[in-house]
């Protein structure tokens, strides 16, 4: 059974259709890169996975549960799916450790001691243990994003969603974040990443999904996608972003 399965998912904002009949699958342990021009619905697509964006048609099964179903306990489902945002979205009024502890204590019911231990281990892993007591505003963008990844990992997620995790970063900080993501991918984490980092895609992705105007135009293995993209739109997109 696939970890994440989209079956003809469609979504509208008013009369404007942002997702058109999207169908794809993410197996356990797979790393999927979603790319495409801006406004093509990539972010909307992955935000559907944890129910942050509701959709009107089709079905979306995550870990055996239908996301759109009224009976699905969304907070419970979301707790199992980690998400990393373009703008980090750390909680500015809490220390780094408190950011990592919050949901562990409130959602998973771990004790503060147990949570802190877990948080410290993860901060160690992303190389930020020395910043455990600082506040998000005192960290650089790259550091904040690594904290955000650690915060998502603290919930022991079964899959991770990345929504343009490096788009808001200064160029010199992109690699520190990608390194953490590569490591995660190599450990077998199921990942769905919206990103334009084609180097990352080449390195660890199993499949690449190319979207344009709300449609999944291309859903191919990495080698096929970079070798011989079938659609003209994907070819154009690739030639535009790979030129430099």
């Amino acid at each position: 059974m696939a970890m994440i399965e989209f079956k003809n998912v469609s979504k509208w904002y008013g009369s404007f259709q942002v997702l058109k009949d999207c169908t794809t699958k993410v197996e356990k342990g797979e790393v999927i890169v979603v790319c495409g021009p801006s406004g093509s619905g990539k972010s909307t697509l992955i935000k559907c996975v944890n129910g942050l964006e509701p959709f009107q048609q089709g079905e979306l099964i995550v870990n055996g549960q239908s996301v759109g179903a009224k009976t699905t306990n969304l907070p419970q489902l979301r707790a199992k799916i980690g998400m990393v945002f373009q703008n980090f979205e750390l909680f500015p009024h809490m220390s780094v450790t408190a950011n990592l502890n919050l949901a562990q204590v409130k959602v998973l019911g771990r004790s503060p001691e147990e949570s802190t231990e877990k948080s410290r281990a993860l901060l160690q892993r992303v190389g930020l243990i020395d910043h455990a007591r600082k506040f998000p505003g005192q960290l650089s963008g790259g550091q904040q994003q690594r904290v955000a990844i650690a915060r998502a990992l603290a919930m022991d997620p079964i899959a991770m969603l990345f929504d343009e995790p490096t788009s808001a970063l200064d160029p010199e900080m992109i690699n520190e974040v990608l390194d953490v993501m590569v490591e995660l991918a190599q450990e077998g984490m199921t990942m769905m990443c919206v990103t334009h980092e084609m180097g990352f895609a080449r390195k660890v992705a199993h499949r690449v999904i190319f979207m344009d105007q709300g449609e999944i135009v291309e859903d191919a293995t990495k080698t096929d996608f970079f070798g011989t993209p079938r659609s003209e739109r994907a070819q154009q997109f690739l030639s535009k972003i790979l030129h430099h």
Binding site: K47, N50, L52, L74, P75, Q76, R78, A79, K80, I81, G82, M83, F85, N87, E89, L90, F91, L102, A103, K106, V107, L108, R151, A152, M155
Partner: peptide, 19 residues
Amino acid sequence: GQVQAAQALGLNYWQATLQ
């Protein structure tokens, strides 16, 4: 985005609102 981040962590409405 703050609300989305709170929700994505599995916090429910009251937890996200209060915390």
